[in-house]
Design a protein around this nucleic acid. Structure first.
Length: 479
RNA sequence: GCCCCCAUAGCUCAGUUGGAAGAGCACCUGACUCUUAAUCAGGGUGUCCCAGGUUCAAGCCCUGGUGGGGGUACCA
């Protein structure tokens, strides 16, 4: 069937070529986009000005010798009216050989039909691209979730909601850059191909550089390179880019994801809390025009200051353990009793994250602060409580969305922490990074924000796949 | 990785107790010079995801697989 529909279109293509039509055109100068044309419709119609627009035909209403079609470009759609006695028999024949999905350009004048529909009376018609495959149906569109991910172009053609999500994503990233640039942060790019993948836990993807005869890893985080730039004297920097983790997929996890990392010299994690609050407010004001919105039925309020709970208080509430008095060993025991998996002697961070997320009753943003040092190999200890670190994680809508700390800048302690972390595992220590610290890194605060998750929250998306244009799926044969 | 759910025409979906594969849109043929999800007349175009099995008979029951969704584990 699909083959038959394609064959029918190929037959039309053949017939078009037979009458001298080039079915894959080139440059077509447009006088207006559809939305601009609509905005200035009355004036243009009165001046009887000839306009030229181009787009994809979405609907055709054939009426013998005079027909209507809806032409759509990125900005909107408009009706065109093609009359045989105006365009001539040959052009009208070409029009009859067109299919829904074809791109063409038209020149003509503007008029309103008797029902008031803004329309173009076509004088000249140019085929720009012949579509060989039938598009999804005009009314129900494309709903199949797998096809929407695999053939995102069809999703974008048919689902306004999807287009809105990606426009919101663009806006959020753009606002974030403006926000940071205005505050004198400089955007940098650091390697995605790294000889050693550090700065987070998580399994890396590995690859090989043939010319260098070496194994390389796709980065799991940019952190250790951004800190090398702090050593290099850059005081306010950020990077928005992909990181890659060779782990399972879920509605909150895609193997490649976009992260923002920000570093400020001479600041601490509390400054980053404020920065996070301000950034999210800036975004919400732009997207919603206010600080309150809903995520899948849950009320979210970004009015500052956001709720803050220390990690110890959260644990006290949940497990009746006072880690500040009893130390972290007792917590581990309680966690084990509660069925939390331990990774060797270490508490798996993901379990902790889940535990904390479950603990929060509100979907509004909450900072959990002051994590025990053993969960934070790169964070600075609290001066008055050396078993804890100057760190926060931001939870919102049931998931972790940001992570920040005052950066550890003592090279000897950093090496020790790396060694402790590597115990019993095949991880290597990043000696090159330790060397950089040995040259001296200013005290600094760092912040990481999961951009995809932030977009999820701001667009009401329940799956990360809905905010990534081409989410990772298994390869299949083309049907 | 494990558990649960889903897969029927190009698209959106029905399909009863196991008894001759359906609808709307799209598409094809014809009519139609202001329609707008155009209308009217006619046409069903299919590897019922794949491979086996049970049965006189399988879209439907059973086993295995593939792809997707959700949960769970690893992870952000």
């Amino acid at each position: 069937m699909s083959d038959e529909l394609i064959a029918q279109r190929e037959e039309k293509l053949r017939q078009l070529r037979e009458i001298g039509v080039k079915p894959y055109g080139g440059k077509f100068p447009r006088t207006h986009s559809v939305s601009k044309l609509r905005e200035n419709f009355d004036r243009l119609a009165e001046l009887k000005e000839e306009v030229a627009i181009a787009g994809r035909v979405m609907l055709m209403r054939m009426h013998g010798k005079a027909s209507f079609a809806d032409l759509r470009d990125e900005t909107g759609k408009i009706q065109i009216y093609v009359k045989s006695d105006i365009v001539g028999e040959r052009t009208y024949r070409i029009f009859e050989l067109l299919d829904i999905g074809d791109f063409f350009g038209v020149k003509g004048s503007l008029f309103k039909t008797k029902t008031g529909e803004m329309s173009i009376l076509v004088r000249e018609l140019t085929l720009l691209s012949k579509s060989l495959r039938p598009l999804p149906e005009k009314w129900h569109g494309l709903k199949d979730i797998e096809l929407r991910y695999r053939r995102r172009y069809l999703d974008l053609i048919f689902n306004e909601e999807s287009r809105k999500v990606f426009e919101a994503r663009r806006k959020i990233i753009s606002i974030t850059r403006e926000f940071l640039n205005e505050r004198s942060f400089r955007e940098v790019e650091t390697p995605m191909l790294q000889p050693q993948a550090g700065g987070a836990s998580g399994r890396p993807f590995s690859t090989r550089a043939d010319a260098l005869e070496m194994e390389l890893f796709l980065r799991i985080a940019p952190e250790l390179y951004l800190k090398r730039l702090l050593v290099g004297g850059m005081e306010r920097i950020y990077e928005i880019n992909k990181s890659f983790r060779n782990e399972g997929l879920s509605p909150k996890h895609n193997p490649e994801f976009t992260m923002l990392e920000v570093y400020t010299a001479y600041a601490d994690y509390k400054d980053m809390m404020q920065l996070t609050e301000e950034l999210f407010q800036e975004i919400a004001r732009n997207i919603f025009g206010k600080l309150k919105f809903t995520y899948r039925g849950e009320e979210i309020d970004l009015t500052p200051p956001w709720r803050r709970i220390t990690f110890s208080n959260a644990m006290k509430e949940r497990f009746d353990v006072d880690i500040e008095k009893e130390g972290v060993e007792n917590l581990k025991k309680k966690l084990k009793e509660a069925g939390v998996k331990l990774k060797g002697e270490k508490v798996a961070r993901s379990q902790l994250v889940k535990l904390l997320a479950d603990l929060l009753t509100s979907s509004s943003p909450t900072f959990i602060t002051d994590y025990p040092v053993e969960f934070c190999p790169l964070a600075k200890r609290k001066a008055d409580a050396p078993e804890l670190t100057e760190r926060f994680e931001l939870f919102m809508c049931g998931f972790e969305i940001a992570n920040a700390y005052s950066e550890l800048n003592d090279p000897r302690e950093q090496k020790e922490r790396f060694m402790k972390q590597a115990e019993g595992e095949k991880e290597r220590i990043d000696e090159d990074f330790v060397m950089a610290l040995e040259y001296g890194m200013p005290p600094a605060a760092g912040l990481g924000i999961g951009i995809d998750r932030l977009v999820m929250v701001m667009t009401g998306s329940s799956s990360i796949k809905d905010v990534i244009l081409f989410p990772q799926l298994k390869a299949t044969e083309v049907l």
